[in-house]
């Protein structure tokens, strides 16, 4: 049974392959694009193509960038002695949106996970070590998620970086700011107690 005109079906199928979009949303989006003025659809199509051709990975930190080096790497007012390692560009954006961090980044593009066939050689680890060679960076902050894979990646990197004489730190795990101890889940409380600091 041919439910939709062939080009429409193609559009729905393409939209459905996007993350977070189910069959119903795909159908709604496709119909919306058909009904909207022609220039709206063209604008979207162009935006997708432009973004695909113009945006690359920064050659230093693997952030997404229009230029060979991203604006963060090129910003001389930032502290390039401090380098934060994240798994994903989304994590970098989360840290940037917090606004307070003034150091540089390094995006690994994943976490070590043998079950998924991802080892250190599949991540930007070699490039990270190369960046550390010139002695500019004095502290590396490991900001991978507190999961089994995130911790494994952090432990692996710490073992490689410490012998270079660079300070290696791990972001703190614990209670959400402004949260009540009363309402925190037990695992969070457990890790917060273990990570307690001297006052």
């Amino acid at each position: 049974m041919q439910l939709y005109a062939r080009p429409l079906q193609r559009l729905i199928d393409a939209l459905e392959r996007l993350p977070g979009i189910g069959p119903k949303s795909a159908q709604r989006l496709a119909l919306h694009l058909l009904r909207a003025p022609a220039d709206k659809a063209e604008e979207l199509a162009r935006a997708i193509l432009d973004a695909r051709t113009a945006v690359h990975q920064c050659e230093a930190c693997f952030n997404l960038s229009e230029t060979a080096r991203c604006p963060i790497c090129d910003d001389s007012s930032r502290e390039h002695t401090l380098l934060t390692v994240v798994a994903d560009v989304r994590d970098l954006m989360a840290l940037e949106n917090a606004g307070d961090y003034r150091g540089a980044y390094h995006v690994l593009d994943g976490l070590i996970s043998p079950m998924d066939g991802i080892g250190p050689e599949n991540l930007h680890v070699r490039e990270l070590l190369a960046r550390l060679e010139d002695g500019t960076v004095r502290e590396v902050v490991l900001a991978t998620n507190p999961t089994v894979e995130g911790d494994a990646t952090a432990l692996y990197l710490a073992r490689l970086i410490k012998p270079l004489g660079i300070t290696v730190t791990r972001i703190a795990l614990g209670l959400p700011v402004g949260g009540d101890l009363d309402y925190a889940d037990q695992m969070t409380i457990l890790r917060a107690m273990e990570g307690r600091t001297t006052m």
Partner: peptide, 12 residues
């Protein structure tokens, strides 16, 4: 795989 990758899993 490289044996150096084992240490983080041992620790955990």
């Amino acid at each position: 795989a490289d044996p150096a990758e084992l240490e983080p899993w041992n620790a955990q």
